[in-house]
Design a protein around this nucleic acid. Structure first.
Lengths: 231, 231
DNA sequence: GTCTATAGACTGATAGAC
DNA sequence: GTCTATCAGTCTATAGAC
């Protein structure tokens, strides 16, 4: 299979043409609005070529998403490693969270005109959450565990359950900001500046850090502010 | 149109049969896996009846979603009003946020077997985010403004921009918890108890409140902890 | 008004010639 | 590896029965 792939790489215009045409169209118009016929027209290849090279429409989408996810995960881990190396194996919690949400937000926020096709595609993937993409997302647990471990190193006294909730909430804020940036912009009438990417990252990092460290000196117990006042 | 609807209500088995069959199937198997033919088979009606009563598949989905959204919004506002009445027109910020995220989380979390069809449908709507549903979501701005106003009353000194970000983040945490409950469960190996609905609500409310009130007495300036340390 | 039967245009997938 | 032709399945639209 490998030698087959290597041989194909040199001459296989078709495969790459399909990939780039598909990513461009999906990024622009979404998964549900783009048919295989649209893609092959854009790529100037035959309809049957898609099924020959990828097996199905879903597998084409999956390949696109996997490729972009790998790049994203590498960026995250590189930023995490840099932060931990700078701190002698332990990074401050702010830096860990920044490595988690920074690459995603930097890629997908900011002035619309400046966004790459890849970024637009990932935004679509986040919004539409088509079945093949959901399946892949569910396999990223091991990647997230690396961040949970780094968070544990940054906050030695923090209970595991709070680590996981913090990680979950950080991703929630980052993703929802990408997904619903338009709504937030309308709701706040432009007051929330979504083009100020660093500002947004700072906010997400600040809220998460606050939630993880509130009410304790620096390495005490976990957040226990679940006073359960209401119903 | 109203009198038309009233007269139809008495005898219109078909319409309601379609609605309930559609909601059940969508809740179980998702939007992309359920065809109109599946729905009319389940409802024991003719295929064309869907187009007669709803115009299109998208409008059927829209009607289902609008109906459930109205119920949800009523619950939220009722809870908000109760809290503000109890406090003489101003509710504490915790109660406001609880009214915002509580109804959604109570409906969509908890032991799987106990979830209503309506709740499962709303979870699907949150996960798949099909076009007709996205359109409706974008129209809920005015509803959210009521909560922004209540938050402003609860935190008179808080800057508007922080109010909006807090509202946005609260919804982000609530929705992502519903959407990705499975992943969080796997990641934490069951440590994060997603069946403890009140516990989850408390967490979301606590984090949001913390973010909105951190580092100031009670009615001082806004959160200004955007120190922007990193890149 | 309500519903049925039917036809149309479109989709993703595939067999088989080249 | 590529292409044509065709498949079964989808949503939509409409003529006409009740």
């Amino acid at each position: 299979m490998i030698e087959l792939k290597r041989r194909a790489m040199a001459t296989d215009h078709t495969r790459t043409a399909i990939l780039s045409a598909a990513e461009r169209l999906y990024a622009e118009r979404g998964f549900s609005d783009v048919t295989l016929r649209d893609i092959v027209a854009e790529a100037n290849v035959n309809l049957a070529a898609v099924n020959y090279h990828f097996g199905s429409k879903d597998e084409l989408i999956a390949e696109l998403f996997v490729t972009r996810s790998i790049v994203l995960n590498h960026e995250r881990l590189a930023e995490l490693k840099a932060a931990e190396d700078a701190g002698g194996g332990r990074a401050p919690i702010e830096a860990v969270m920044r490595a988690l949400v920074g690459p995603t937000l930097r890629g997908c926020l900011g002035p619309e005109k400046q966004r790459s096709t890849a970024a637009r595609f990932m935004i679509r993937a986040s919004i539409e959450a088509v079945p093949p993409i959901r399946k892949i997302r569910n396999r990223e647990i091991s990647h997230l565990r690396r961040f949970a471990a780094a968070m544990r190193r940054a906050l030695p006294g923090c209970a595991d359950v709070d680590i996981y909730w913090g990680l979950h909430f950080a991703l929630a804020m980052a993703h929802q900001t990408i997904r619903d940036s338009e709504r937030l912009d309308k709701l706040s009438e432009g007051l929330c500046d979504l083009d100020d990417v660093d500002g947004v990252i700072d906010r997400v990092v600040a809220v998460t850090t606050l939630a993880l460290t509130a009410g304790r000196p620096k390495t005490s117990k976990a957040v226990t502010s679940r006073d359960r006042t209401g119903t």
